[in-house]
Amino acid sequence: MSRTPGATDPPARDTVAAGTRAAPVRPRVPDAEWNDWRWHMRKRVTTVAKARQWIALSPDEEKAIAGAAGTYRWSITPYYASLMDPVDPNCPIRLQGVPALGELAEFPGAEVDPVGDMYYRKTNRVVHKYPDRVIMLVTEACPVYCRHCTRKFHTTDVTGTYFRDDEGESFDEDFRYIADHPEIRDVLLTGGDPLSYRDGKLEEIVAGLRAIPSVEIIRIGSRFPVLLPQRVTDGLCEMLSRYHPVWLNTHFNHPKEITAEAAAAVDRLLRHGIPVGNQTVLLRGINDDVTTMRTLMTELLRIRVRPYYLYHCDNVTGVSHFMTSVEKGWEIMEGLQGHITGFGVPQYVLTTKIGKIPLAQPYFTRTPDGLLLRNYRGQEMAVDTAAYPITEPDAR
């Protein structure tokens, strides 16, 4: 048996409206290889020549690839490449995977670390920003180096790494820090992408955390369900299920990424008791319109992924060209609230050095008599303090 990559997937969405596109001709690949995540990792697109096997590179894309050399890594899995429109450089998949000239431009206020990871780093891997939870930067490897990555500096070719020591160094110092701070009850594994490790190495990390009595929740931040869903095997899920409660947050940005293979990966996680949430980034030219975002959220619910955050794109060096205005984010949130089921509406946030700041506009205004309420249609209703007290009564 063999398959043409992408040929047996459901019709891809170049726009969010229902439609189809002809599957481009791809080299035939045996099913055993196409379904093996390690094959995809070995065959990642990392050169112009390899990219041309999948897409007709535009002159600007070729200039950007050359300009990014020695500064920013790039790679694309064959699976993710199969979702790219072969001729349209504005394809939302191409924009996320192929270097663009905007990465080389300078933007006001851009920083390599606007979220303060370096400031809050306590060990080689542990970043302790919030009282009861930490992140662990366990690797700098990813299957696809997303062009909009918040930690783009972490995956540069030159000096961009947050690791004080090599990522392969012992984890003992990291585990010891967490054990010595019993207020830490929640650990998020991130990087890079933790699922870049093979199951055995990943289990060593998860087991080390589970051995710490104060750690209640282990979370994994991974884009593998989107970029290479073949990685989410029954074996991986069975291993993770031995260390519950384990949660996984992933990162779908466009409806075109929700394929049958991605849905199957999510289903495997769920069947092993691993809840799946989604953290979308608001990206100019990719999902910065109400129709696309509404379709994305409803499609996520269809495959049983809970929308969690809508991140305002960070002003990261090499990423700023993806930023929209905050006003655009408000417009999109207004187009979600009330128009889809409540638990399908993510929280719109801006990540800063002082934490994640909710940016959603309020649906109420305080008045001398009580509250003026506004619904998603713009209709208003006044309620007075007799019906809904605003302040607690004087207890004296």
Rank of each mutant, 00 (worst) to 15 (best):
T4V: 11
T8C: 08
V16P: 00
A22P: 08
R26G: 01
D36V: 01
K43V: 03
A51Q: 07
Q53V: 14
A56K: 13
S58M: 04
T71F: 05
R73W: 00
W74H: 15
S75W: 04
I76M: 06
I76Y: 00
D88Q: 03
I93E: 00
G97W: 01
A100R: 15
P108F: 05
E111V: 02
Y119G: 11
Y119R: 15
T123V: 05
D132K: 14
E140A: 15
A141W: 14
T150Q: 13
F153P: 07
H154G: 12
V158T: 12
R164S: 14
R164A: 11
V187M: 08
L188M: 08
L195H: 06
L195I: 03
I205R: 14
V206Y: 04
P213V: 12
S214K: 08
S214V: 07
S222L: 02
F224W: 04
R231P: 01
E238C: 05
M239P: 08
Y243E: 06
V246C: 10
I258M: 00
A260Q: 13
A260E: 06
A260K: 15
R268L: 01
H272A: 07
G277E: 04
N278G: 02
L282G: 11
M293G: 04
T295Y: 00
L301M: 12
H312E: 09
C313F: 00
N315R: 11
H321V: 05
M323D: 00
T324P: 07
V326R: 12
V326A: 03
W330P: 04
E334S: 15
Q337I: 12
F343T: 15
V345L: 09
Y348I: 06
I354V: 13
I354W: 08
K356G: 09
I357A: 04
F364Y: 15
T365C: 00
T367S: 10
N375S: 03
N375G: 05
D384W: 02
A395S: 14
R396D: 13
